[in-house]
């Protein structure tokens, strides 16, 4: 199922909202990405990540564009790799779990 996530700006944060709920935010001042929170927002609990569309509502904001680009890259890369793993034969896929 397609998920659409909206990238917006508030007073001091960049926010990612899904169905009107903020699921992830980045502080404008330090642009720190908390990876665990990011993971929880986009992927945890078997969330469907096969078709995620991120929409940048503030394309003219320079810092926002950078933040959006980073998160979009992460989401797409993770989704792509998961899809690739899914397509692999089972024994090959399981070999990935190394040290």
């Amino acid at each position: 199922m397609k998920r659409t996530i909206e990238f917006q700006i508030s007073d001091d944060k960049y926010t990612f909202s899904e169905n009107g709920n903020i699921i992830f935010e980045i502080n404008k001042d330090d642009l720190q990405v908390d990876v665990k929170t990011f993971y929880s927002a986009f992927f945890a609990d078997n969330m469907d990540c096969s078709d995620i569309e991120l929409h940048n509502s503030i394309p003219d904001n320079k810092d926002g564009k950078r933040a959006f680009g980073c998160i979009e890259q992460l989401v797409k890369e993770v989704s792509t790799r998961l899809m690739e793993d899914h397509k692999k034969p089972e024994c090959e896929a399981s070999d990935e779990n190394g040290e």
Binding site: Q32, D63, R66, A67, D95, G98, E99
Partner: peptide, 28 residues
């Protein structure tokens, strides 16, 4: 999982090597 900062690297040319995708031993 930690955290990282999104940095402004617009002026930096990507002429250096970036090492990604380290192979891992499969001890398990």
């Amino acid at each position: 999982l930690g955290s990282f900062q999104i940095v402004d690297l617009d002026g930096v040319l990507a002429e250096s090597l970036t090492f990604v995708g380290q192979p891992s031993r499969n001890n398990k």
